[in-house]
């Protein structure tokens, strides 16, 4: 009873999800072994793991972009069929339409909802203002810096007001300062209406600074969750300042103990493959 009630109320619930990819030469590659992952409404969960461990793959399952080989995905208690309409997905790579201005990129996100164009443009303007880009509304993506493009992408997703945010190393390509600024912006926006967040990153410090809970995935193949740590740091947080707190270091040390082994394992495999 307890567990099913938890699953019913969960924003995202992956149960026994495993993912295998077909290899070009035949056979399959088991990317992710049977994994359970539950994100409660309003909870900020970060997934860390070594490169290539399948954390992005798991996120794609939650988005409905990849069908798992086994297991079920439910979103707010309903089994997921097709794409996850409750979720906004922030990609690592550039996902903006290069042929549209920042304003049009954000406004077009409302078109599937049937919002009239004039109102969509008005709301897009407001959202670009909220992410601090009101001056750049008429710029095309190639005229924007990496951080500015992420801001547009964030506005594009948030304007639809999704109940879940799925983020795939969104700040990965950015420089260190911009990452901190974007992290703080994300926390500010998240604090306003507390969406459920599943945030994939390879940066443990970023994960701890942002999240309520940090999940560690093991090195692939057949990766699975090997650690799950609640982050008992207060909010609101400042990404840069929180890193100096002793409690932050204690948590970091604790999670790193698990993560280090996996990173070494992944690295050894990588070396082995190259040899």
């Amino acid at each position: 009873m307890g567990e099913s009630a938890q699953a019913a109320s969960a924003a995202v619930a992956l149960r026994g999800v495993s993912i295998a990819f077909l290899l070009p030469k035949g056979g399959t590659y088991p990317a992710v072994a049977a994994t359970d992952l539950v994100v409660a409404p309003g909870e900020f969960v970060a997934i860390v793991g070594p490169t290539g461990c399948g954390k992005s793959t798991l996120l794609n399952v939650a988005a409905g972009l990849i069908q798992p080989s086994t297991g079920t995905t439910s979103i707010f208690g309903r089994p997921l069929a097709g794409l996850n309409a409750e979720a906004g997905f922030l990609f690592q790579q550039d996902a903006l339409m290069p042929w549209k201005t920042a304003l049009d990129n954000v406004a077009v996100a409302l078109e599937p909802r049937g919002v009239p164009r004039k109102e969509a443009l008005e709301r897009a303007r407001q959202w670009l203002d909220r992410v601090g880009l009101s001056v750049f509304v008429d710029r095309y993506p190639h005229m924007l810096s990496g951080g500015q493009k992420k801001r547009v992408a964030l506005a594009q997703i948030l304007i639809r007001d999704p109940r879940i945010l799925l983020m795939d190393e969104p700040f990965g390509p950015l420089d260190a300062q911009t990452r901190q600024i974007m992290g703080n912006l994300l926390l500010d926006l998240w604090a306003q209406d507390k969406k459920a967040v599943l945030f994939v990153t390879h940066d443990l410090e970023e994960a701890i600074a942002l999240a309520d809970r940090v999940v560690v995935m093991s090195a692939g193949p057949a990766a699975t969750i090997v650690g799950d740590t609640a982050i008992d740091l207060g909010r609101p947080r400042d990404i840069a300042e929180i890193r100096t707190e002793p409690r932050f270091h204690a948590i970091h040390k604790q999670i790193w103990a698990t993560l280090r082994g996996e990173v070494q394992k992944a690295y050894a495999q990588g070396e082995g493959r190259r040899a």
Binding site: A63, F89, L96, M97, A109, P112, R160
Partner: peptide
């Protein structure tokens, strides 16, 4: 067409007609 742009447009809820208009056609 970039698979990321396409996946993003799909996640924004675009149907085939909207994908055609906003993604495939401009590309």
């Amino acid at each position: 067409v970039s698979p990321t742009i396409l996946a993003n447009a799909r996640m924004l809820g675009m149907n085939e007609r909207q994908l055609l208009r906003h993604v495939y056609w401009p590309a």
